[in-house]
Simulated assay, not measured.
Amino acid sequence: MQGIVTGPLAETGRALSDAFGAEQERQAADAEADAAAGQDLATSARYTLWIALAIGIGAAAVLAVLVVRQIVATVRSVQKSVDALAAGDLTVTPEVRSGDELGRMAASLGSTVSTSRIRSSKSNYRLVNSVPELLRNNFVRHADNVRQRDSRLVTSRCE
C-alpha cells in the first residue's frame, strides 16, 4: 500500500493516521484508568455503606436495650407497689423514672397509695383517740352495772 500513494499528501495522511492512533491509545489508557478508579470508588462506597449500616444497627440495638430496660424497671416498680398494696402495705410507692405513659401510671399509683396511707393514718388516729373514750364509757357502764347489782344485793339482804 505504501507504494500506491506517494508524495507529501500521503506523508501527511500517514502522520495524521499515526496521530489518531496515538490519541486512541491515550484515550483507551485514560478510560482504563478511569474505570479502575471508578471500581475502586464503588468498592470503597460499598464498604462505607456496610460500616454505616453496622453502626446504625448497633446504635438501634443499644437504644432498644435502654428503652426496654427502662420499661421493665418501671413495670417491676409498679408490680412491687401493687403487690405490697394487695398485702395491705401502704408504704411502698413505685419509682417514677419518666414522663411517658408508664411513668404517669406509676405516678398515679404512687399518689393513690399516698392518699390511702394518709386516709388510713387519719382513721387510725381517730380510732386511737377514740379508744380512751370507749374504755371510759365501758368502764362507767360496767361500774354502773356493778353498783346496781351491789345495791340490789344490799337491798335483798336487808329485806
Score class of each variant (00 low, 15 high):
49 L>N: 10
138 N>G: 13
67 V>W: 06
94 P>R: 02
147 R>L: 14
138 N>R: 13
140 V>L: 08
80 K>H: 08
142 H>A: 15
111 S>K: 09
87 A>T: 01
70 Q>M: 07
149 R>W: 11
133 E>D: 13
81 S>G: 01
104 R>E: 06
65 V>T: 06
89 D>Y: 00
146 V>R: 08
49 L>F: 12
57 I>F: 13
66 L>H: 04
102 L>T: 01
157 R>A: 15
49 L>H: 07
50 W>R: 15
157 R>P: 09
91 T>L: 02
92 V>L: 00
48 T>I: 11
59 A>Y: 06
87 A>V: 02
66 L>G: 10
79 Q>E: 13
57 I>M: 09
115 T>R: 12
55 I>G: 07
74 T>Q: 03
112 T>N: 09
72 V>P: 03
74 T>C: 00
106 A>L: 02
104 R>A: 08
146 V>M: 14
91 T>W: 02
47 Y>M: 14
154 V>D: 14
155 T>M: 11
136 R>T: 11
55 I>E: 10
67 V>T: 07
117 R>G: 01
46 R>C: 11
85 L>E: 00
65 V>N: 07
69 R>K: 08
135 L>F: 09
72 V>G: 05
124 N>K: 09
105 M>I: 06
142 H>C: 12
107 A>N: 01
100 D>M: 03
75 V>N: 04
156 S>W: 09
131 V>G: 03
148 Q>C: 11
67 V>F: 07
128 V>E: 10
55 I>V: 12
136 R>E: 14
41 L>M: 13
107 A>S: 06
141 R>W: 09
78 V>L: 02
152 R>T: 15
79 Q>S: 10
64 A>W: 04
66 L>A: 12
42 A>Q: 08
42 A>R: 09
88 G>Q: 00
60 A>G: 10
105 M>L: 11
72 V>L: 07
50 W>T: 13
78 V>R: 01
97 R>W: 01
46 R>M: 13
128 V>K: 09
115 T>S: 11
58 G>I: 00
50 W>V: 13
75 V>F: 01
46 R>E: 14
60 A>F: 07
48 T>Q: 13
41 L>Q: 14
148 Q>K: 11
141 R>K: 14
67 V>L: 08
